[in-house]
Structure formats: C-alpha cells, structure tokens
Simulated assay, not measured.
Amino acid sequence: MEIEQLEIRDYLARCPPLDRLNDEWLDRLVNSLEISYVRRNSPILKIGERNRWLYLLRSGAVEVFDKKENLIGRFGAGEWAGYRSLLRGGEVTLSITAIEDSLLYLIPDKLFHQLISEHKTVADFFATEKTRRLRSATQTLRNTGDTPLLHSRARDLLHRPPLLVEHGTTIGKAARLMREHAASAMLVMKNDRLTGIVTDRAFCTTAVADSLSADLPVTQIMTPDPYTITPATSGLEALLKMARHNICHLPVLDGSSPVGIISAADLIRHQSHNPLYLINEIHRADDLAGLQQLSRQLPQTLTA
C-alpha cells in the first residue's frame, strides 16, 4: 500500500464499527473506497436520488433535512451518513448538505451490504445508530433543562396515517411498501388488532444479516407486542420511553386502533423548532446562507 492508503487504513481501523474488522476487510475497504472533497453549502445527497455510497466524514460537518426542510441532525468528523437510504434500497428520503468544507470517504453500496451480511456487530451498529443519537438528544434535554416536548402531545407530532400490513404479508412485499411510502416503520395487524412492528432496523439486523428469504412472512422479523403510546402522551414522555427501551418508533393507539407512528426523527425535528434552539443557532450562524436556512424554520416556530 502507498503511504496515503496506509493512513486511510489506520483511520478506518479507529472508527466504530470498522475497529472490529480484521486486516483483510480493512484492506478491501481501502482499495474500494473513493475520496470526495465537498465545498461548504454544497449538496451531498438530494431527496429522490438513488444513493450508491456509505459516507464517512473524515473532516468537516453536514446537516440532514427532510423534504419540508426541517433539520433532522448535524454530524461531524468520524460520523456516518447515507446508510439509512442504503438499508432501504438506495432511495434518498433525506437530503444531506455540507455546512463546512468536508472530506468524505465513500464506500460502495455493494461492499456495505456484504459487510453487514458477514458481520452482525457492524449490522447492529448501523441499525442502532438512531438510538444512540436519540440518547444524545435526551441527555441534551436533561443538561439544559430545555423541555418544549413536555408541552407537545403525540397527536401534534403525527404527520401521516400509519403504514399497515396483514399478518401474512411477505418480507419482500413489506420492504417494497416501506420503500414506496418512504416509511421507516410499519405496523403488523391481525383481525384489526396490532400484533407487531417492523422497522428498517429489523431489515438490517435480521432480514439482511441472516439472509432470510423474501417469501417468508413479515412476522419473522417483526417485534411482537410493541410498546405503544396514546394521542395524549407528551412528546417528552415518548422520548424518554424510546431511550429507556432502546427503540426508535412508538405506535400511537386511540383505544385499540393505530392512528400513527412517532419516530425518534419526529421528536428531534420538533425539538429543532423550539424558539430557544433557533435563537442559539441564529447566534452561531456566521454567514448569510446559514441565516437564510434558519429563517425557513421561523414561520413554523412562531405559529406553533
């Protein structure tokens, strides 16, 4: 290997979850990855595109937005991006933009899928990455005493009806439905009653990692009898429940009828519209583009 490749290999070996790989796999990654330098305010992924890469930030920072330009998260050096779309067939449902000049390592999608199919610990890492970020958000609330979620209710956070499938639906059909609806979770029903939940995490840790047939019933990968909340449950209570049980989705039941699903992204997105959060971000913005991006969030905040 050349000196530059050896330096990259050494860096990969220190980045979770690649720090668990043997030398052969590290060599494969180094020989297959591409290097990309992205200027500040330049897009990395756009909604509607097909993603073919797993991104590792070597330096710089990026922000992730949904289709309504709500801020989902901000990530820096040593963190991963793009894995969510890869786990769902490549369709991009969240945009990623560099907010600093950024250096990225790009791992091909085929190699990523082979990696998680051969290494359960790596598959588990990417499947639980959202949970780790949720715990971080929870800790931030505790440290700052900033609890706008206390005054919101689950009914206020629902933005669409839940995706429902019957007990006998196949894994393959369930995956297609989640991709078509850009959903990160679906509910499994039997005789009009909720019996389980299937998330994108289940496809990664069970369906892909265990090489299950697409013709098997979705019950093979669902979580039975999931934790639930009611429309009147506070956003803070939902957040704490997710963190306590290491989950990222909660079905919302009105009586015994599902009316929606609250995700960790919904809660973090709601937190980002908190006026105190925006005031802090406005003070930190150091250019016109940053202020323009924040200004798009002000109408939603002021009318909340």
Score class of each variant (00 low, 15 high):
9 R>I: 08
214 A>Q: 15
235 G>D: 07
172 G>D: 07
218 V>E: 06
213 S>A: 07
8 I>P: 05
13 A>C: 12
53 W>N: 09
237 E>Y: 13
209 A>C: 11
139 Q>F: 00
157 L>S: 04
285 A>F: 09
96 I>N: 06
104 L>G: 04
230 T>F: 00
188 V>C: 06
213 S>D: 12
45 L>T: 13
125 F>Q: 10
124 D>S: 10
155 R>A: 02
119 H>K: 14
149 L>K: 13
202 A>M: 10
258 P>M: 05
35 I>T: 15
145 G>A: 03
190 K>D: 15
139 Q>N: 13
48 G>H: 12
105 Y>T: 01
82 G>S: 07
244 R>G: 08
264 A>V: 15
217 P>M: 01
134 L>I: 10
132 R>L: 00
80 W>I: 03
127 A>R: 12
210 D>C: 00
75 F>M: 12
175 A>M: 06
22 N>C: 04
288 L>H: 14
193 R>E: 11
54 L>Y: 10
147 T>Q: 14
240 L>T: 14
80 W>G: 09
216 L>I: 07
286 D>S: 08
176 R>F: 00
186 M>L: 15
133 R>C: 07
188 V>S: 02
221 I>K: 03
220 Q>H: 06
143 N>V: 03
292 Q>R: 13
61 A>R: 15
133 R>H: 15
208 V>C: 09
49 E>N: 15
266 D>R: 13
49 E>V: 07
146 D>V: 03
40 R>N: 02
153 R>N: 08
160 R>A: 10
27 D>G: 03
177 L>F: 05
289 A>P: 06
179 R>I: 08
87 L>T: 13
65 F>H: 00
171 I>G: 08
283 H>M: 01
301 T>K: 08
264 A>S: 15
62 V>S: 10
109 D>S: 13
149 L>N: 11
137 A>P: 10
262 I>F: 04
210 D>Q: 04
59 S>R: 12
159 H>D: 03
254 D>F: 01
147 T>K: 11
52 R>E: 14
24 E>M: 02
302 L>E: 10
186 M>T: 12
304 A>H: 15
91 E>G: 08
145 G>V: 06
99 I>A: 02
304 A>E: 15
37 Y>R: 14
172 G>V: 04
29 L>I: 13
296 R>L: 10
121 T>L: 09
82 G>Q: 06
56 L>N: 11
20 R>F: 05
28 R>Y: 10
157 L>R: 08
167 H>D: 12
133 R>A: 05
208 V>M: 13
246 N>P: 01
196 G>L: 01
262 I>A: 03
31 N>I: 01
247 I>G: 05
14 R>G: 00
233 T>C: 07
249 H>L: 01
40 R>D: 01
47 I>H: 01
116 I>H: 14
128 T>K: 10
27 D>I: 01
86 L>K: 04
205 T>Q: 12
